[in-house]
Design a protein around this nucleic acid. Sequence first.
DNA 1: CAGTGGTCTAGACCACGCG
DNA 2: GCGTGGTCTAGACCACTGG
Lengths: 256, 256
Amino acid sequence: MSTQRAEPLWLSLSDQVESELSRLPAGAPAPSEHELAARFGVNRLTARAAMQELERRGVVRRYQGRGTVVARKVEYRIGPDWIPSWTRTVAAAGVEPRTVTEDAATRRARNDERAELDLGGHDRVVQLDRLRLCDEECAGYQTSVLPAARVPGLRDVVGVGGSVYEVLTEHYGFAPGRVWTRVEQISAPGWVARRLGMRGRPAVVLVRGRLDCQRTGAPLELTFAWLRADMFDVIVEVGEWKRLPAPIPVRKADAS
Amino acid sequence: MSTQRAEPLWLSLSDQVESELSRLPAGAPAPSEHELAARFGVNRLTARAAMQELERRGVVRRYQGRGTVVARKVEYRIGPDWIPSWTRTVAAAGVEPRTVTEDAATRRARNDERAELDLGGHDRVVQLDRLRLCDEECAGYQTSVLPAARVPGLRDVVGVGGSVYEVLTEHYGFAPGRVWTRVEQISAPGWVARRLGMRGRPAVVLVRGRLDCQRTGAPLELTFAWLRADMFDVIVEVGEWKRLPAPIPVRKADAS
DNA sequence: CAGTGGTCTAGACCACGCG
DNA sequence: GCGTGGTCTAGACCACTGG
């Protein structure tokens, strides 16, 4: 029997606070660092470590000057049978979605884009840079690259807050279908972190994908989306999906 | 335009150290907290914060008493066209894989397992609990549930370090194929963290899946794998792969 | 044993958001 | 102005690893 190392103070604090917060709804205020320190008779840094642990667990979100609030991640499912709409997914979670097009410009295609989009040496592409907001808080950043010839005037058609998917369908008459999607979690590159308004290299989920027109087979769109990992619970499903998945098995008596 | 807040000391420290470490191979020793503090004339806690940032980024791994070393994640791809072998994937990354079966027991199936595995009310299942080690360090934990009637004597056939997939194929003569797989990143439940030998609730990638026999359609295996998120870079690929095979980043056009 | 990272304290100042 | 979280310091003790 190996001796169990004593649990540090900040860890037991965080466990206790987490169970207290579990009953509160998203957005409810969590105790401040000073309050916790006073209540448990510990140094503020210890209370702080506990709250930072809860932030890592996704239980709370902290704002300088405003305090700490209970958080809930938005469940974002990606599967073989559907293309998720970011706006509808977020709205379904009870959060207010908003999209802001930061930039829309036409330029020459890069080599990798030419290959992926079946373009010639002088073809041009439109690149859309968009911010994704959840309750007016920056939650993700996305770039889309489309063959300029197939989407004339895209910039104006999409406007500041429009949906590319809807525009492709309703304005241009395409039938966009997924060719592939790749998902992984990474540390945000510096320039992405900056656009997200975050310091350091926060964890983000990178979703890459390509859409083609299902009727003509013409490549339509290449997307890169960086979603804040502390705001989204991305679940990727592979394979056939006829039945419901099984819940997590809990073994023996050692629950919790 | 917002004024840019000054970058904190620990952040610029971590950026500088990261660029220094970028040339070193995995396993190389990183500077200690004391050394950093002395070199930059800062408090040890500041140097510590910098190294913790690098740990979050996956650049280093830290061990009490042993020091900090440069780390490299194992790339683990999951896609619609293949079932990844954990052992081969890890070995391909230049890391020594090992699997230890901690427990193998037969018991009655739970309701969800009966539904998923097409079992009757009194059918039994075998549950295998296995640890996944990378270079003798605990990197993941996995449970597999199989219909006991279809894999008689599984416990002894698999042994302590055997591969379930190989045993299903070669010993029992099945043709295992994926029905579905689901991947998401979560905070490890307490009992998983304990089995991984970690405190708190470290980030893990939860991979759930089900295998059937491709010939008979009989359900074979239900798996739950928890992989340490700091040791694995899990990339999930979704979609059709008819026009393009499945290599990694952006791919060139394929003439074949 | 010396050196590493892990925990904890006390106290200070700052940046930020809100009223 | 007040309270919040963010940064930083100085110093202490502990747990663990390795030679």
